[in-house]
Computed example of a mutant assay.
Amino acid sequence: MGQDRTPAGGLRVTTDRRPLREVLADPTTRLTATFLLIPRLEMVELLADAGFDAVLVDLEHGPISVDDLPGMVAAGHGAGAYVLARLGERTPATIGRVLDCGVDGVVLPHVESAADAHDAVDAARFPPDGSRSLNPYVRAAGYDGTESFLTTANAGVAVLVMVEGKDGLAALDDIAAVAGVDAVFVGPVDLSTSLGLPGQPEHPLVLEKVQDLMDRLARTGIGTGIYCPTPHAAARWQRAGARLAALSADIAMAGAGFRRTVEELHDLNTEGRSR
């Protein structure tokens, strides 16, 4: 499921941007995203214009801070893309600050138990569904939040919990059963390390574990997200039912594009000299 976009000033904008939580609840959803490590709104706009449905701003590994988020969220929404933030920690204060910036969802790392998942949901939802602190003068509330903001935020903001280790796999059924978890996001890179195969997310054993995980989640009806290093991997997991495929990362794709351009120039010069 991609978004319906129309040209507008060189960028494509959505004509139907449903809340991400609602979108992820639909089993027919197939969103294509990528991780963002370059803290530039121009990169967000380029990715949206290229056709990515969502960007995952990486606050865990990228040189990005919460201060960078408002501009990126504005750029993404203006170009018709969803903007999520992958956090480096799951503290209530950090989750609340990120959500106050207006992101459509949070991706929370290293969830290894139902208790971890419950704490994450609690921090991301306003009462009575959780304990998120309210400030009506933040971007997410339109700088002048009313009571309706509490309801719309709870109904719209998605909570994705990352399962990326042996403990998380063992507790998967309990994690998926936690009310308010909208999707389980699989981290095959860290999972490969946990399985003694560091840096090998496409190893047959890792693929076997991921497929088993997705099969188990499918039986629960909960959404699945997953990091995919290549288009081939993304297509595989989308066919398997992943509702959010995070394909590669901005910096990886940019580097590959730069290398292809220089290699093409080198090849053309070589052909010219041989004539």
Rank of each mutant, 00 (worst) to 15 (best):
G221L: 12
F185D: 11
T224E: 03
Q3L: 15
G10F: 08
T29C: 09
D116F: 02
V159N: 04
A124D: 03
P136M: 06
A74M: 04
P39R: 09
L41K: 09
G102S: 10
Q200S: 03
A235I: 10
T146C: 07
L99M: 14
H77A: 04
A256G: 02
R243P: 03
A155G: 06
D104H: 15
H118Q: 13
G168Y: 12
P27D: 13
R21K: 15
A176C: 13
E45H: 08
R216D: 11
S131H: 12
Y82T: 10
V103C: 07
L191E: 09
E22W: 12
L268Q: 15
R97G: 00
Q3K: 10
V184A: 08
A115M: 07
S113N: 02
P27V: 11
E263Y: 00
Q200Y: 01
V178T: 09
D68M: 05
M214Q: 13
G221I: 14
A254Q: 12
V107M: 10
F126C: 06
L37T: 10
R260W: 00
S133G: 15
P229K: 05
L47R: 00
P92S: 06
V186K: 10
L197I: 09
T151P: 06
L244Q: 07
H61Q: 08
V13Q: 07
F258N: 02
M253D: 07
D49P: 01
V163D: 02
V73P: 04
D267H: 08
A155M: 03
G142D: 12
S248P: 03
G10L: 04
L47T: 00
I64Q: 03
L108A: 06
T151K: 14
V189G: 14
E147S: 15
G96R: 15
P19E: 12
F258I: 08
V184Q: 09
A85F: 03
V186E: 07
D122I: 06
L197T: 05
T15V: 09
D100T: 10
R86A: 06
L47K: 00
R21T: 04
A235D: 13
A115N: 09
A50M: 13
